[in-house]
């Protein structure tokens, strides 16, 4: 079997044809003192897609976004946005980005109306009509002080402002943190709806799998400052599987089936409830193209996307 080309950064399969990218990070390193937050992070986001940026808390997502926004600078590596180096034109690039931060640090004394008057000064493509429309759609009171808004309302307002700049790229940094499930779902629907309408590229950072499942076309999983997966969801889901066998039948070193060693890696194995459980990750097309013949005693265990994520992240 011919082995497909691998992405150097992820160790996983790369897209077959190079696609145009809106933003790309390649081998980006960032440290704060002795703490290495990003350790060779690489990823690419294509035009028009919703890219889910997935990772545990502390994996380096927010640092990566601060780098993308040009708020901080990387120690090494290359960051390109809209085809140009971020550092060469940070202000111009930011004007084309709509950004919703994790925490909404808007001025509490301002009303949404005053805030829009403030923000529009920074964005040449500000669309007042759209702002009003979105305010109306999101049912946000334009003359109430922002300090009195709930977390969900602030997030909606932030999204409204971001979308009103007619962004080519929308960056959302865990925007639903602290929201209740209903508000979260409502917010995600809005993001999906608006980005579909605009055709803008969306970079969505989160640690919640269901959010990614709901809106992402492609994902990047970051762990310990490195990308451990980059691609679509289904291949990921299809590349990871778990099998188990009764402890009494388990022969140490054995595999659930007849797999060639070079086509898989063991993400996780161990004893659980009297059974030996093994999670394996294959090349993306393995599970789809091979009919797996299991050895005697082994059985297939169902995995949710969250299980897959945890397994991938835990093995990184």
């Amino acid at each position: 079997m011919n082995e497909p080309a691998r992405n150097d950064a992820t160790g996983l399969l790369a897209p077959e044809e190079p696609a145009p990218v809106v933003l790309s990070l390649s081998d980006v390193h960032k440290s704060f003192g002795s703490l290495h937050v990003l350790d060779g992070l690489s990823l690419a986001v294509h035009p028009g897609e919703v890219f889910g940026f997935l990772g545990r808390n502390g994996a380096g997502k927010s640092t990566a976004i601060r780098l993308l926004m040009g708020i901080t600078q990387c120690d090494s590596g290359q960051i390109n946005v809209f085809g140009e180096s971020l550092q060469s034109n940070v202000v111009g690039i930011r004007q084309r980005i709509g950004y919703v931060a994790q925490e909404q640090n808007m001025y509490p004394w301002m009303t949404p109306k005053v805030l829009s008057q403030f923000v529009r000064g920074f964005y040449p493509r500000w669309d007042e009509q759209r702002y009003r429309q979105l305010m109306n759609d999101f049912d946000l009171p334009p003359k109430r002080r922002i300090g009195t808004f709930s977390g969900g309302m602030k997030a909606k307002l932030a999204l409204t402002l971001a979308l009103s700049t007619r962004p080519e790229l929308l960056i959302l940094d865990e925007p639903t943190a602290g929201m209740d499930p209903v508000a979260r779902r409502e917010f995600l629907d809005l993001v999906r709806e608006q980005t579909m309408k605009d055709g803008a590229t969306t970079f969505f950072s989160t640690h919640l799998i269901d959010e990614i499942e709901a809106i992402a076309d492609r994902i990047g999983i970051v762990e310990s400052g490195r990308t451990v997966y980059g691609g679509e969801l289904d291949p990921l889901r299809n590349s990871v599987a778990t099998w188990s066998i009764a402890m009494s039948d388990y022969i140490p070193g054995s595999l659930p089936g007849e797999f060639a060693r070079q086509q898989l890696c063991v993400l996780k194995e161990g004893q659980r409830q009297g059974r030996w459980v093994m999670t394996l990750q294959f090349s993306q097309n393995v599970l789809a193209s091979y009919e797996i013949v299991l050895n005697e005693g082994w059985r297939h265990e169902n995995m949710s996307l969250e299980d897959v994520f945890i397994a991938v992240v835990a093995s990184a």
Partner: peptide, 9 residues
């Protein structure tokens, strides 16, 4: 609020 301003272009 400084964090809000520093993310502006």
């Amino acid at each position: 609020t400084r964090l809000y301003v520093e993310a502006l272009p």
